[in-house]
C-alpha cells in the first residue's frame, strides 16, 4: 500500500531531447494532482517513469508505505493503476471478457467486479465486442479495473476526455471516494478535473 510518492530532482530525456529536469514534488495519501503543460512537455513520460517503464536520466522516484520506504518493484506491481490512451482492450473480444481479465489480473475480487459494473454502467455493454464500443464506452470499460481492484495510486492520462457529462460527473465522484479512502491521483489533463486538485505545470 503506497502512502506517499516522492519525486526528487527528476530529469527525463527522450532520445536526445531533455523533457524536463529538477522536478520535485510529493503526493500524499488523499491528494490529487493535475499535471498540465503543452503537448510534448513530458506529462505522459512522467507518468510512465513513475509506473517504472521509463528510466529517469537523473533523480529518484520513491514510494513510501505505512511502515517506511517500499521496494519500487513491489510498490508498482501491487500498488498502482495506470490508465492512458492505450487501453489494452482487444477489439475482437467481448467487453466483459476483457474487463474481467483486466480486473482479475490486477487482483480484483468478485465484490470489486460487481461494484465496478454498477459504478461505470458496464452491464449494458458487457455482451458487445470491444470494436463496437464508442470511445467513451471503451474508456469506461478500461477504467473499470480502477474500481474493481483497489490500488492506492492512480496514474491517469486524460481520463475524462472521451466521457459524456454524466459519466464525467460519476467518475468525479469515484475519484473523490478514492481520495477519501486514502488514495492518490496523478492525472495529466488539459481540462480541469471535477475534483479539487493540486496542480503542477510540466516543462513550463
Amino acid at each position: 500500500m503506497i502512502r506517499e510518492v516522492q519525486i526528487e530532482n527528476l530529469a527525463i530525456v527522450r532520445g536526445d531531447r531533455l523533457l524536463f529536469e529538477g522536478l520535485n514534488f510529493s503526493l500524499k495519501a488523499g491528494q490529487a494532482m493535475s499535471l498540465t503543460g503543452r503537448n510534448g512537455a513530458g506529462k505522459t513520460s512522467l507518468l510512465r517513469a513513475i509506473a517504472g517503464f521509463l528510466r529517469p536520466a537523473e533523480g529518484e522516484i520513491r514510494f513510501q508505505g505505512p511502515h517506511g520506504l517500499l521496494e519500487a518493484e513491489d510498490a508498482r506491481s501491487g500498488g498502482l493503476h495506470m490508465a492512458g490512451h492505450q487501453d489494452g482492450l482487444k477489439s475482437n473480444r467481448l467487453a466483459q471478457d476483457e474487463f474481467l481479465f483486466q480486473a482479475r489480473w490486477t487482483g480484483a475480487t468478485d465484490a470489486g467486479v460487481a461494484k465496478a459494473r454498477e459504478a461505470l454502467d458496464l452491464d449494458v455493454i458487457a455482451d458487445l465486442e470491444v470494436r463496437k464500443l464508442s470511445a467513451g464506452q471503451r474508456r469506461r470499460l478500461s477504467l473499470g479495473r480502477l474500481i474493481a481492484s483497489p490500488r492506492s495510486l492512480w496514474l491517469l492520462d486524460e481520463p475524462l476526455a472521451p466521457l459524456d457529462a454524466a459519466h464525467r460527473a460519476a467518475f468525479g465522484l469515484m475519484m473523490s471516494a478514492h481520495l477519501a479512502s486514502g488514495g492518490m491521483i496523478l492525472a495529466a489533463v488539459h481540462d480541469p478535473l471535477p475534483i479539487g486538485t493540486l496542480s503542477l505545470e510540466i516543462g513550463g
Partner: peptide, 18 residues
C-alpha cells in the same frame, strides 16, 4: 506485438507476477 501495440503489455507489466 498485439499486446505491445494496444498497451496491454503495460498492464501485464504492472500485474501480480514479474
Amino acid at each position: 506485438e498485439r499486446d505491445y501495440e494496444d498497451g496491454a503489455l503495460d498492464q501485464l507489466a504492472l500485474g501480480p507476477v514479474p
